[in-house]
Design a protein around this nucleic acid. Structure first.
Lengths: 209, 209
DNA sequence: TAGATTGTTAATCGATTAACAATC
DNA sequence: TAGATTGTTAATCGATTAACAATC
């Protein structure tokens, strides 16, 4: 387990640092100070230095940070130097969208199969994937060393599917179902709740009138 | 503008309260104390009472809260008693998934049209929507009193589209593109960054080894 | 009335910001 | 060396939790 106790606030900023540093690299910018990064990313320079120093001293006094090196370090901190095998459950519109997004694969997250409970979907070929029967879920996870399940199904069957996945050793769940899943504490669940996001937008628009 | 200064932490919990109260209503549970809600939602009872009291005294001493009434009040706080007209820009997999999700329409967010820049998509019929040419974006927004733009396009053209939308009076942007958009401060942007979410999952899985 | 539970104030905890010595 | 900027400690700010009087 990770040594220091990093707060979720810090953790959720890490992918943003990674993204901005990647953008800088694309622009061939090799060097940046916390002040300059602050100006473009919108966090204070102090916060940036505090955040980074949770993981090590990546900068150099009087110089700043080497963009490439820092991008790489944060990538490693995020685990992007590893490859993950994933399955996607629920081959509807959203499931297909996510399975087909090449950016995830490039980042090391490879969807190995699509599953669906709907008999009419099973056997269908969707781009690179054949839709498999949920029946074969357990065997597939075990045989293909699947780390992550991406859950794009309605909330009703979700907990049951998750129990089955946990049973065969899934490590992480990327959950798009609007339900707070119950899992043993060594299993990580990351929720994406689109409705909650849209409702937040609604609140802020109302607030702003 | 809203009277009190409600923190984002509180705001982001509101949709969750709304969802849990909705679930309770589905189970015909009419009454709940902050303690009972705490047990199922996972926030402390104290926090729940603090959060709610930012908006009013919805409970009753010795009794708790009426589930239906509270659900309704939070709905109003979130602006769910209003109807919003939306357009969706970028009719790819993700765009189609979101446009076709009936839950948003039921909550009052109606997608009035799909737009795409790709000539081969234009004119295509996708479920209830015909894909319109991005050229006609401004006219459509004005004529149909569009409040919200849902942005499901790559980051490259995103800022330009947003500038055009802002020009014709869009009020809110639900942004799925991996870019921090620049907008006047009276325009609300709610970002959904799937890659950042996936990277967070990756970090936590690594942390947990 | 007695018991329960809110609404609200005060205390605590944690996260952010400021400041500056260290050092490249 | 002088200037710049980090790494890190201390101060501040804000959010969460605890406590309890009010009251249904």
């Amino acid at each position: 387990m990770g040594s220091k106790n990093i707060s979720m606030a810090v953790i959720r900023r890490l992918p943003k640092y990674h993204r901005y540093l990647g953008d800088l690299l694309d622009k061939d910018i090799q060097r940046i100070s916390s002040k300059e990064l602050s100006d473009i990313i919108g966090f204070t320079a102090s916060q940036i230095r505090q955040d980074l120093n949770n993981f090590g001293g990546f900068g150099q006094q009087g110089y700043g940070y080497n963009v490439g090196a820092l991008h790489n370090e944060i990538g490693k901190i995020l685990g992007l130097d590893k490859k993950y095998n994933a399955i996607l459950i629920g081959a509807g519109n959203l499931g297909q969208a996510i399975a087909n997004y090449s950016g995830f694969k490039r980042a090391g997250f490879e969807v190995k199969a699509l599953f669906d409970a709907n008999p009419r979907m099973i056997g269908l070929k969707i781009r690179d994937f054949e839709v498999l029967d949920s029946e074969s879920l357990e065997d597939f996870v075990k045989e293909n060393e699947i780390d992550i399940a991406m859950l794009c199904i309605p909330k009703n069957g979700a907990q049951n599917i998750v129990d089955r996945l946990v049973n065969v050793g899934i490590k992480g769940i990327w959950n798009f179902a609007p339900i707070d899943l119950e899992v043993p504490k060594n299993i990580i669940v990351e929720n994406v709740n689109l409705k909650e996001s849209l409702f937040t937008l609604s609140y802020l628009m109302k607030e702003n009138e």
